[in-house]
Amino acid sequence: MSILLDLRQAVIHKVHGKDKDGLREMIEGSIDAQEAALPGLGVIFEILWKNIDHTKQDELLTILDQQLAQIEMKPLK
């Protein structure tokens, strides 16, 4: 459990104090990057999710549902 807390704290420390442009750069730089960046995006998503109301959560879920439906799934090897 402490590993997760350390990861959360490391990500928060990395983005703390960044302006909108800095946050956008970090997010866009992590998307489609090496899988090592995915936990950081997870922490950012967790912060976002915890701090938006249910209406906005539902909007995100609708977008996610629509986008996932468009992805062609390939069998796992």
Rank of each mutant, 00 (worst) to 15 (best):
V43Y: 03
T55G: 07
I44V: 08
D58F: 05
H16R: 05
D19Y: 12
I71A: 07
L5A: 10
L61P: 00
V15Y: 00
R8I: 03
I12L: 13
Q67I: 04
I63H: 06
P75K: 00
G42F: 05
M1A: 12
I12A: 15
D65A: 15
E72G: 15
E25V: 04
L23N: 11
K74G: 04
D6A: 12
Q67S: 04
D21K: 09
P39S: 03
G42V: 11
D58Q: 05
A36K: 12
L41H: 07
L38E: 09
E59D: 10
G17I: 06
L76M: 13
I71V: 07
L23D: 08
Q57R: 08
Q66Y: 00
I44N: 01
L5M: 07
D32P: 04
D32V: 05
T55R: 07
A33S: 15
L4N: 12
D65G: 06
P75H: 01
V11P: 00
H54Y: 05
E72D: 14
M73C: 15
I44Y: 01
G29I: 12
E35R: 13
G40S: 05
E59C: 03
S2W: 15
I71F: 12
I44F: 02
S30Y: 03
T55S: 06
V43G: 02
D19G: 15
A37S: 11
E28I: 04
I31D: 13
T55C: 10
I3R: 10
E72R: 10
K18N: 13
L23V: 09
E25Q: 13
D19F: 14
Q9A: 12
L23H: 11
H13R: 08
G17C: 13
K14E: 02
Q34T: 11
R24G: 10
Q67D: 05
T55Q: 10
L60T: 00
E59L: 08
V15S: 00
K20F: 15
V43M: 07
G29Y: 08
L68T: 12
Q67L: 06
V11C: 08
L64F: 02
G29P: 07
L60G: 01
M73T: 13
D19C: 12
V11M: 03
E25S: 15
Q70K: 03
I31V: 08
G40Q: 00
L5Q: 09
E59S: 10
R24D: 07
E35A: 13
D58W: 11
Q34A: 14
D65M: 10
D32Y: 09
D58G: 09
K74D: 05
G17N: 04
E28M: 14
R8N: 10
K14C: 05
K56D: 04
G17L: 08
I3M: 13
L68Y: 12
L61Q: 06
A33W: 09
L38V: 14
D32R: 11
L64C: 02
K14L: 14
K50D: 13
E72T: 14
R24C: 05
H54E: 15
D32N: 10
D53W: 01
A10M: 12
L38M: 08
K18G: 07
I47H: 02
H16W: 02
L76E: 06
K14W: 04
E25Y: 09
G40P: 00
L41Q: 01
G40T: 03
V11Y: 01
Q67A: 02
P39F: 03
E59T: 11
I52C: 01
V11S: 02
T62D: 07
A10P: 00
I27M: 06
